[in-house]
Computed example of a mutant assay.
Amino acid sequence: MRLIAGCQITYEVNAPTPLIFMLRPRSGLGQWVMREEYIIEPSAQVIEYTDSYGNLCQRMVAPPGSFQVQTTAEVDTADKIDTQPGAPYVLVQDLPESTLQFLLPSRYCQADCLGDLANEIAGNAAPGYDQVEAIRSWIQQNIEYRYGTSDASTSAVDTAEQKVGVCRDFTHLGIALSRSLNIPARMVVGYLYELDPMDLHAWFEAFVGGRWYTFDATQKEPRGNRIAIAYGRDAADVALVTQFGAVQLKNMKVWVDKANT
């Protein structure tokens, strides 16, 4: 399905403030970016670079006053995500070097603290895809999705203990539990068609059977029509906006619509 997705972010800026946005999707597996629009009001000089995870980042200085960034992308997306029950576990010594960083504990994903829980959840599953699916299913069934129950400091350990959170928290827990079984896992943020309520979304990918597969613990069944924007170890790597000064968020709007074809 071809989707038109975008977001509009409005700030009130007190003084010239450096900002880094991460709002441009890249073409890749399951998505083809057909066209884009990036509007900045008032105009600011933009320098784009690619970070260590392959994400497109836009660097600029926001002038004082009202400052707005709006991005829109038309993307041809896969209607279904790839699934592969039984895809085998890849021995650590056989993993591609690019995946090794996604085995390690990170700021919000303390894999070294959750080994017992991971084995309790997935110990009887076949090593690899089936273990990650057992983790995803357990989170979906045992963690309550509720707004306002977590904040920017909430970690996977917190979510495991409190058993409540939002998509970011579900994702961190899935990543940490997968890594504790020596399965590389990474965070993805982007858009999901017909997400209710509409917002930017987070899910995770795990490397099994020689490739990355998508897992979303907030959904009962696998759902396609996703647009990935950014990848990283956890939320610290995939912030869609990073500010280096005092700016006030005034409004944020997100939309994902089916394109007219």
Rank of each mutant, 00 (worst) to 15 (best):
L29R: 15
P25H: 03
I183A: 03
V256Q: 05
I227N: 03
P184G: 02
N260G: 09
N142A: 08
E144H: 08
M252R: 06
A259G: 08
F67R: 10
N182P: 05
V75H: 04
V189G: 03
P85I: 04
A125K: 05
N142Q: 13
F207A: 12
Q248N: 12
E41P: 00
S43A: 14
P105D: 14
E161A: 14
W255M: 04
Y49C: 06
V13W: 00
E12Q: 15
R146V: 07
S66V: 15
F21S: 12
K253A: 09
L249P: 01
Y193N: 15
F102V: 09
I4Q: 11
G128V: 01
A73L: 01
V166Y: 01
A125V: 05
L104K: 15
A62G: 10
F244G: 07
I20E: 15
D112V: 00
Q58H: 07
R59D: 15
T159W: 07
G28C: 12
G54R: 01
A236D: 14
L29G: 10
D216T: 05
V90T: 15
A160S: 13
R35M: 04
L95T: 12
L29V: 10
C7E: 13
L91N: 13
R26P: 00
R2W: 01
T10L: 06
N251C: 09
D79P: 01
G209C: 13
A87W: 11
Q31P: 07
C167D: 08
S180H: 06
C7M: 15
V256D: 01
D76I: 02
F102I: 05
E120D: 13
T154E: 11
G224H: 11
I229V: 15
D112P: 00
L195G: 01
L181F: 02
T159N: 03
T83G: 06
E120N: 01
F204S: 03
A118L: 11
T171P: 07
L195A: 10
F244R: 12
I121A: 03
I39C: 02
M60S: 10
F102T: 07
W138Y: 14
C109T: 14
V46G: 12
L29A: 14
A156E: 06
Q45L: 13
P63L: 02
W138P: 12
Q93K: 14
D130P: 08
A176T: 09
T71S: 14
K163M: 14
K80N: 11
H201W: 04
